[in-house]
């Protein structure tokens, strides 16, 4: 278990039921600041459901999801906040958010958690640049005086828009899309759309970036570039990343911490190397009972 002062996200006893189906069952894990935490598991294990709970798209049936900004002292406010019924507590030292109490747009707007989707969700009829400006909506809305100053053409809004375009340009450079800034997002090749979606999520200036299978459908070269990009986001921006991934090469190469789900239950939690050798994980992936793992491993030459 990580030292408490490093933890940025705590998921505790998270349960999500859809009717009689228990998609996630009593899941607890933590993610540390500046870490890449991978959430893996076979198809249907409930990974995306966990993401939807964290990002506010689902309201969990039970459990607590807490996110910290600023100083680690914020964790001391967790119990009073939970009992008090508020969504968040903000003090000069830091802030604490209970994500399960917030609607999805506030999770991004206030708790600053950004996400991408398994099936890419760009605005296909808008240009690449416009996609990145929509991501900066809340800041620009404020600068435009909730539209009023903007309609009247105040110079303060023009300045804010220029700054937003600069920020978008910086991200376009990082994901190598500057040349295509004025093309429709729907016109981009698949790999570029994946990169654009990550850039768009980053334009919301998150503290926690949730990526749902970012390497799906990428060729090995694109996949390697994605690894570099994610490591750079972690190391240069000090942004924590939560990652759902099927591609084990990505998971093993870049993640600092791995949580394994199977049928909605956590079956393993630890460093990538330890996860790779965990018989429960191998059994879950190969689809055999624990006691047969040794035989199967021998067969496949592990």
């Amino acid at each position: 278990m990580a030292a408490a002062d490093d933890i940025i996200l705590r998921v505790e006893h998270l349960t999500m039921r859809f009717g009689w189906l228990v998609a996630v069952d009593d899941l607890s894990f933590t993610a540390r600041q500046g870490d890449i935490t991978a959430l893996i598991g076979p198809n249907g294990a409930g990974k995306t459901t966990v993401f939807n709970c964290i990002t506010g798209f689902y309201r969990p049936s039970e459990g607590r999801i807490a996110l910290r900004h600023g100083d680690a002292i914020a964790w001391e406010w967790l119990e009073p906040l939970t009992n008090g019924g508020e969504r968040s507590v903000k003090r000069p030292a830091g802030a604490l958010y209970l994500l399960e109490r917030m609607p999805e747009y506030l999770v991004t707007q206030q708790a600053r958690v950004a996400r991408t989707f398994q099936n890419i969700r760009l605005f296909p009829g808008m240009t690449v640049l416009e996609n990145l400006l929509v991501a900066q909506h809340n800041r620009l809305m404020l600068a435009s005086g909730y539209t009023l100053f903007g309609v009247l053409g105040f110079p303060s809004y023009a300045a804010a828009e220029r700054a937003a375009i600069e920020r978008a340009k910086a991200w376009l450079d990082r994901v190598d899309l500057t040349a295509r800034a004025d093309d429709a997002a729907g016109d981009l090749p698949y790999g570029a759309q994946r990169r654009l979606e990550i850039a768009r999520a980053m334009c919301t200036e998150p503290v926690l970036l949730c990526l749902d299978e970012p390497a799906a459908g990428l060729n090995p070269r694109e996949s390697a570039e994605l690894n570099e990009l994610l490591l750079a986001i972690r190391d240069q921006q000090r942004i924590s990343i939560l990652l759902i991934e099927h591609d084990m090469s990505v998971v093993m190469e870049i993640s600092d911490h791995v949580v394994v789900l199977d049928y909605g239950v956590k079956i393993a939690d630890g460093a990538p190397a330890a996860i790779r050798d965990n018989p429960k994980v191998i059994a879950a992936y190969l689809g055999v009972p624990d006691k047969d793992v040794a035989n199967v491993e021998a067969e496949v030459g592990l």
């Binding site: 798209f57 747009y105 991004t108 707007q109 950004a114 969700r121 760009l122 296909p124 909506h137 919301t204």
Partner: peptide, 16 residues
């Protein structure tokens, strides 16, 4: 316009 293109993506970007 973003709402017309994809409402869920809008919500994921903090748009009310």
């Amino acid at each position: 316009e973003a709402l017309r293109e994809d409402e869920i993506a809008c919500r994921s970007l903090g748009i009310n």
